[in-house]
Design a protein around this nucleic acid. Sequence first.
DNA 1: ATCGATTAGCTAAACGTTTAGCTGGCCCTT
DNA 2: AAGGGCCAGCTAAACGTTTAGCTAATCGAT
Lengths: 333, 333
Amino acid sequence: MTTMRDVAEEAGVSVATVSACLSGRRFVSAELKARIADAIATLGYQPDGVARSLKTGSTDLLGLVIPDISNPFFTEFVREVELMAKSYGYATILGDSGYDVATERKMLDLMRQQRVDGVVLCPAGTRRDYRFDEWPENIPLVVVDNAWEDTPFDTIELDNVGAGLAITHHIMGLGHTKIAIIAGPEGNHTSDQRLDGFMRALRNEDIVPPDDFIRHGDFRESGGYQQANALLDLPRRPSAIFVANNNMLIGVMRALHDRHLKVPDDISVASIDDFPWAGAFRPGLTVARQPVGVFAQHALRLIRKRFFEEEETPREQIMLDAELVIRESVRKR
Amino acid sequence: MTTMRDVAEEAGVSVATVSACLSGRRFVSAELKARIADAIATLGYQPDGVARSLKTGSTDLLGLVIPDISNPFFTEFVREVELMAKSYGYATILGDSGYDVATERKMLDLMRQQRVDGVVLCPAGTRRDYRFDEWPENIPLVVVDNAWEDTPFDTIELDNVGAGLAITHHIMGLGHTKIAIIAGPEGNHTSDQRLDGFMRALRNEDIVPPDDFIRHGDFRESGGYQQANALLDLPRRPSAIFVANNNMLIGVMRALHDRHLKVPDDISVASIDDFPWAGAFRPGLTVARQPVGVFAQHALRLIRKRFFEEEETPREQIMLDAELVIRESVRKR
DNA sequence: ATCGATTAGCTAAACGTTTAGCTGGCCCTT
DNA sequence: AAGGGCCAGCTAAACGTTTAGCTAATCGAT
């Protein structure tokens, strides 16, 4: 490999001058600039970021940890974060935890070891699954989507209670009273909040759903499939199902398909998280859409703010509203 | 930050011994091991990967460049690659080029600068869009999915001609003769091959499609939408459409939906690339599935092989078969 | 007892940058 | 003419590891 040393020699200057020329942080005469440029061209020199990182302490690397990239919400989030990161000159290290907290910890550790300039974490677990006293002070970390209350970190999340309320109100507004929910894992913050919104909406109308109607999936397709089947096996079926995320929605649709039940003729379905295919098929799916791009913008803003800030400012807890996208999967009863 | 120096001091040994203890590459007595472990625990020492990388020359970083992460084929590929990478101890740097060759080059340059141990590239462009004479000898690069002929690199791709043939034969086998294709951008290797398979299948049966039936989209949803509309505006419509990738398929479905055309009753549709939702909706979509997991396995195998190999072995050109997944979107005519 | 082989742990030199601080030449001022 | 200020470019010391090569201690064989 050709190093800066070689370039310096070839151009007949010192390494300091080459460095100054490349970084532009110090003045270098036009003549030397030209000689250095020539030397670089003839030798095909390409700078070594690792050495640079060691010396300067910043790697221009960003960590991004998500629980499941095949969930279109996270797919889109990855896309937006990577896009923003790129525009600021960062490269993105991606880690998919597969909703496994141990894997997630390993990823975070790996990223710390790579000395990333910041981490965007969409946590799979709850607060006490992590040992953040060990997290280095100087690496900004922002928690997105499944944010816990009691951390020192900046958080960004949907107003999940509001989204749960909005969806449930929409369903009730079309005359449904026998409404079931397939929530996420118990104890998962996001899931709990969406369930909370659901319950509040029902309570507003003095509806008390049977225990059978409140189900917990795993936020993945298989969980949606299982829980939908459980609901459909009930002697007294719901007329509408609120599914707490899009992957489970797929499973639900598959279960309905298996039983030749038509949406929304036989049963209504609504969910949280839009995705590219939601409008392309029959029936178009009614969902509450998360402002994914805005999530990503805030995430990068916060990381850069922390990275450059001189003295610490209080944590930000950002909460954004969902947008109800009404298509065809909920029908008047 | 606490460094290895601090640990060495605390434990009353040399840095060399600490290093030996941590890496396990040299024998260290049980007593010192314990003292070092204690020192690490009390100081909360965490090793610095950047310094390690500088010295050893390997970063345990893998580059992955794809043209569009929202395409489920690439979503799945990213997932599989990241999973395999993780299992070998690599972290994955992800770059989405957005089908833009300039961005792609920037990503590759960034990755080279980060001294990744290897790169998996799903190129957006054609061979001559790149200047691979500048690519460093010692960073293995494997080209996946849109592989060119004339490179020194290992390649992995679908047998696209075979896939095009299989899909088209399937359609023709159900009695269709007026078959259109929405291919990808002209000059794109993958697209050209799939189109080639399509044409060969038709030629086998002495069918000559009108020029109107051969359309080129951009491999994205909007392209599929536009080209489908163009086809449907034709005075003499096709009875079946072969769509060359899944994202365009979404656009096609949307166009059909807009015109209240039912698949497969009014028109048949088939595509290449399976995706999680293909079977969940009505109609279930008939597709040729790429063995994505196997792609990822080969990619990692090849990168590691090149990284560790003493003397150069000839390039491998791996070509894998698609699997026809027959659902409901193509119907007997 | 002596010599050589073996081995645990140490010293010190890298790896390829950045940057604080120095040098020496030039120009301006008095 | 001498002194001071300024500035382009240089020297050398980091950054936090790894590792070749050395030292000194231990042990067995003669």
